[in-house]
Design a protein around this nucleic acid. Sequence first.
DNA 1: GAGACACAG
DNA 2: TCTTCTGTGTCTC
Length: 564
Amino acid sequence: MAALPVRDDRRIVLHLDYDCFYASVFEVERPALKSQPLAVQQKQIVVTCNYEARRRGLHKLQLIKDAKRICPEVVIVLGEDLTKFRDASKDIYHFIRSFIWGGRVERLGFDELSLDVTEMVDYNMNLLNQSNIKSSFFHLDKSDPTVGFTYNATGFHGFTNPPQEQESSESANNLSTLGMRLLIGSHLLSHLRSKLEYEKGFTATGGVSTSKLLAKLVGSVHKPNQQTTLIPPYEMDDNTESNVIGFLDSHEIQKIPGIGSRLAQKLRAKVTGQDTGDGKVTVRDVRLHPNMGPPLLEKTLGGPGAAKGIGQRIWGVLHGVDNTEVMEGRDLPSQISIEDTYGRGRLDNIESVRRELTVLTKSLLRRMRTDLVDRGELNAEKPRWLAHPRTLRLSTRPRNPPEIDGTRTYNANRTSRSAPLPSLVFNLDENLDSLAERLVQDHVMGMFRKLHTERSGWDLGLLNIAVTNMVESAGDQKQSSGRDIGKMFRQQETVLREWTVYESDDPPKLTPDVKAVEQCGWQDEDEDEDEDPPLLSIECSICGAPIPHFAQQAHALYHVSEEN
DNA sequence: GAGACACAG
DNA sequence: TCTTCTGTGTCTC
């Protein structure tokens, strides 16, 4: 019998999942839609629909024509442009984060949040007045004791898992410390959900436990607009069953976050014995399989490409152990990409490819300006780039050629090429159309020809254009959370070394210069006293990047080299 | 760093 | 037909 992994239950984690998010965004915009069946369309697919539509038999990822047949009254809105969803998602994220001490709020996709509320819960736990527990006050602000809300601490808010027996009002007295902390967390979650609904118009489903994994899983038990707390006992001993194990055990293996289709397939094959791996296999089936433990899991799931230590990790997950922290959320994305899909024959010649790439590239440049440029309050300041992506990437998905019998199989695989992102894209004075055309003409088409060397004969199902390798421009300190100081100094050393090479070389070589300049995007004034040495810099008048003194000449050279 | 892949909503 | 339009993280080279 393999040793049981150890769970750390010191943290309290809340999980929030906005109900049918895309549909809700339209409902907030036009409240009359709330009473109607509503579906959001991307291409020929219903990507999500509201609960009124679900009552009538619609569901996610359904073909539009099936949806119309099943529910002819359905209101269909187009959701291929994600701008308003992204904006709403960001707005909700900032709203919720404004309540949370320490800012440990992590976004997963557009519609989910994990919150580490340990500090808030423990603070309020210590202030509980045992003599008047029915009308307790939850403090949301340490420095202002009037800020908060009243709550009844004799019971959990919302559902518990497993369901609690009908008990007297003294039930809170019998709770363990962990139970009491989870209870307080459940009231905070309820408050956040109310605020979200009444101030922003979005309902959400929530979960309370001690890790991202468990809070998310338990949150999905009662949907929509409900919340569930996974209650103790969490540990197993001679007299008690662990509720964590009991809760997890009945889940199908693929329902567990982090176990996707590939891992699930391998696990099902192992447990059912050399099957293609189809039947329903639960966490319990895997956990209790003969000789199961980290080594066997490593052997089953490992191999080329698999993450190392996967056996240990999955063994933990099967026991509800997830010690990954809730990270402080980033304000800047690490990548921006735009893609579109195309029907057969739509993209089989170079001119149509160029046309579509120009459309996508223009959207990408617009996204970069909205997401990476700080225009300041009331447009008083000069706009400046908060981050400079260093890499441009083009991906395509070719259609499979027809089989002998004429049928085509679907090809899910993408293929990609990357190149340095030319700095002309940071010029805020040039309009998007001409910028996009220059970028496609001078850079993207070359990457496309590297991807598809054949003159013709291809038929593409998808184009994706992305900027990656984001380098934050330090400077706006309050916005650039969580920057890696160690990495900064490592990069700084690289830049300095490159510069030294340049200085001592007789003829200036272009390659090292470009390299040095590319790495200078993050550089800025250093205001912190303890970070030495302070590096002065100025802003480039062409691209707005903060440039350290020593790199100014090289940076200017870079722009000159861009001109041809 | 480039490119592929796994996983997520 | 693992569908849409993204985004993050990790592996191998």
